[in-house]
Amino acid sequence: MEIPYTVEAHPETGLNNGKIGIWLFLTSEVMLFGALFATFIMLRIGSDGNWAAMQAEAELNIPLATLNTAVLIASSLTMVMAWASLMRGQLGRFKLFGWLTVACGGIFLVIKYFEYTAKFEHHHYPESSTFLAIYFAMTGLHALHVIGGMAWNAYFTGPGSKLFHTNRQWLTDRVEHSGLFWHFVDLVWIFLFPVFYLL
């Protein structure tokens, strides 16, 4: 049985199934992170002026986090370049930019690993303070999303790219959808970075 509207647009929505599906998924993700941001606001307001002290005690590494921000921004560029390469019919360039995106995700996680281990060496754990509890919860959930996005992109850049030879448009659409998820992960970090490290 052939599933309709995988490539062509549905007459009701003007979008194919994948596109409407990924946007609905992203709206649920907005509410997931939104709930945690609301928790963050509540904890900060309820800290009775102790927030700055807890933040200072946590000794977050601003240069490393700035580097991680730059890495994720670069990965967003390589992601759209991968999609643009498919639009141009350039499979080789698509694979290059696709793997660069996955590599940027890997670099982000390695830097995060160094950040986390530095915290643990100083006996800074989620139970150490309210600030660290929400810091580990939100950055940890974000890191899980980075891992998910890397797996998704690695599949389409690797074995999934065979679709290029049989249905190029379908592959292009799928990469656009995985890109939407990847940019969302970047967008979340754009807010996590100043909220935890700078403000």
Partner: peptide, 30 residues
């Protein structure tokens, strides 16, 4: 990057609804 500047109306309406709920969620603790 997410091409929202040139998207179909249904995406805008879906996101508008999400933004409304998101603002409500942020307003609750305040």
């Amino acid at each position: 990057f997410m091409h929202l500047i040139d998207e179909k109306k249904i995406v805008y309406w879906t996101l508008a609804l999400t933004v409304a709920f998101f603002i409500a969620l942020m307003a609750l603790p305040l």
